[in-house]
Nucleic acid binder design. Structure first.
Lengths: 142, 142
DNA sequence: CAATGAGTGTTTACAGGTGAATATCATCAC
DNA sequence: GTGATGATATTCACCTGTAAACACTCATTG
């Protein structure tokens, strides 16, 4: 399970040092994919396979379903960490997530989110808001 | 069940000696998570898994649900006690709970609270207040 | 062919994390 | 009370992970 929040920076060539702790779970080779909420996601090979399995279940006859499959599959890149523990984030992905210097990585159970600080702060909530939202899902949190 | 109040200090590197009695229940590896009221919480693996199980039930398509999952998961760190019975409290967590030197640990049934002395004193009540609040919940305390 | 830009590899420096040693304190048995 | 034991506190030294800088290769373009 991925957890935790990591603040890092990328170098001028768009390379990101993957936090040592995450690397333990991610391995040397994994997938970087565009995600919702203007972030990128890192998937282990295994988790990526699971995700793709879901995509395969989508109805081919549905135009929106085809768009979704294309969005995810075309954005998936397999990356490899170099000797210094860095990965290169493809230019298209950097543009998509508005990443230029300061980056936040967030553990999200089965994947890792990669954000620009700006987008991260825009989307993250404080403990009060968390309480409110929890209450809205009272059926789950009791 | 966790109970009791423990006063401890952290060293200059942000490490906290986990009280021996709590360590018996917490084990060698457990989770440290941000909580409400500007405190931190320690969860056993078991209790944490229970909580995450709830989070997994939330609908992925809902933006608020995603925010909530990120809030909790990104604040969770798995920590391991070293040979001397200490854990390292991540910098982000120390900042969040305003912890710098003096720390209070409080047993809270299924989890352990970690507070700066200042926050602890600000939030703790005396017997009069306890009586008043108990009276307000007369339906429960009779 | 020169110039540019993207990607790759190497090096260095520093801060923060980690481990070990020691000191202080409390508790308990005798 | 005294000594033994274990828990807590403090300090120091070392090492790893991260940041930043720079040189090099390769492909593309004018």
């Amino acid at each position: 399970m991925f957890t935790g929040e990591y603040h890092h920076s990328i170098d001028t060539k768009g390379r990101l040092i993957v936090p040592a702790k995450l690397r333990e779970s991610l391995g040397d080779k994994f997938f970087i994919v565009k995600g919702v909420d203007k972030c990128l996601n890192l998937y282990t090979n295994e988790e990526w396979e699971k995700f793709v399995a879901k995509l395969r279940k989508l109805p081919e006859g549905n135009a929106n379903a085809r768009k979704l499959v294309r969005f995810y599959l075309s954005s998936a890149f397999e990356v490899e960490v170099d000797k210094q523990g860095r990965i290169l984030i493809p230019t298209t992905h950097r543009d998509y997530a508005k990443i230029d210097k300061e980056v936040v990585l967030s553990g999200e159970d089965n994947k890792v989110g990669v954000w620009s600080v700006e987008n991260w702060e825009a989307i993250s909530i404080d403990d009060e808001e968390a309480t409110d939202i929890s209450n809205a899902f009272a059926d789950i949190f009791g």
